[in-house]
């Protein structure tokens, strides 16, 4: 696995997901995000900050685009209905829709093959791993990510991010990243690891709903559903099936408007593990 896998399967490494890839999967963690339920409250983002030791970079660095939000809530605005005014305000009063955007854990990820040191690779769990202590900070992965979901530590943010006694809130289950390291959403791999350890101690498989990611846990409307897509009885697998979203497909041919599922940038054939359910609109915009 891991580095050995990359070395041995290099020629197959970019074999498209439509051909089944080349990985032997234990799990395939995935998500389904119902945009109709998303109210844009940013609880998911806040939960992510708390769970994953995300540094707070401050206003000026945020403006420069150095924010370390692994999960950001993107805002989109409907086109103004009022055609008489030619000027659209920056923040219209209505028509906002939200989209929680985190690492899509692509199954044929663009970030993986460009890493010169194999710090990012595909795990048998279907995740894009990011090994911090291996990362040399070349930032190729970030530049190759179509979603812009990788965040680079340009400074030692930890020095100012958690002044005493806030350092006590740090999660010991994952590293506090230092300068020069790339980081991104891991689907709360520390929780996955803990659940798998617990399951293995009891000689059983991980159950659906046994644990969830911090964002899904914090979502007040339950818009985010997390689970194992290999487990056909899981909530997330059922949602994928219900909305006819399949892995390894880079173009959806769906006529039925009831099937709202889509994956972002599916046409790039990166095979993301996150499915979004389109917002239902009554106005027909």
């Amino acid at each position: 696995m891991s580095l050995q896998n990359i070395m041995e399967n290099w020629s197959n490494y970019r074999r498209g997901a439509e051909e089944g890839g080349h990985h032997k999967y234990e799990h395939r963690w995935g998500m389904a995000i119902n945009l109709d339920l998303c109210i844009g409250c940013n609880a998911c983002s806040t939960a992510c900050y708390a769970e994953n030791n995300l540094a707070v970079v401050g206003k000026s660095r945020f403006a420069k685009g150095q924010a370390m939000h692994w999960l950001r809530v993107e805002r989109y605005w409907d086109e103004s209905q009022n055609k008489s005014s030619s000027v659209t305000p920056d923040y219209p009063e209505e028509g906002a829709s939200f989209l929680p955007m985190m690492c899509q854990q692509c199954n044929s990820a663009t970030c993986e093959p460009v890493c010169p040191v194999a710090a990012t690779y595909h795990t048998p769990d279907g995740l894009n791993a990011q090994v911090y202590n291996r990362c040399i900070g070349s930032r190729y992965c970030s530049n190759n990510c179509p979603y812009r979901n990788r965040y680079f530590n340009f400074f030692s943010y930890y020095e100012s991010s958690w002044p005493e006694p806030l350092n006590l809130q740090l999660n010991p289950d994952l590293t506090v990243r230092d300068k020069g390291v790339m980081e991104k959403c891991t689907f709360c791999v520390q929780r996955i690891r803990a659940a798998k350890d617990k399951a293995k101690m009891a000689d059983r498989k991980v159950q659906d709903g046994e644990f969830t990611t911090a964002c899904a846990q914090a979502c007040p409307t339950g818009a985010i559903v997390f689970g194992d897509r290999l487990d056909e009885t899981s909530k997330v697998a059922k949602l994928w099936q219900q909305h006819e979203v399949k892995l390894g497909v880079y173009k959806q041919h769906k006529q039925n408007p009831e099937k709202r599922g889509y994956r972002i940038f599916e046409e790039l054939n990166v095979d993301p593990s996150v499915m979004y359910l389109e917002r239902v609109r009554d106005t027909g915009i």
């Binding site: 696995m1 891991s2 580095l3 050995q4 690779y121 795990t123 048998p124 769990d125 995740l127 791993a129 090994v131 911090y132 202590n133 291996r134 289950d173 994952l174 590293t175 791999v189 520390q190 690891r193």
Partner: peptide
């Protein structure tokens, strides 16, 4: 034992 990087590295 497991040989996957992410089994031990966090």
């Amino acid at each position: 034992g497991p040989g996957d990087c992410w089994k031990c590295h966090k």
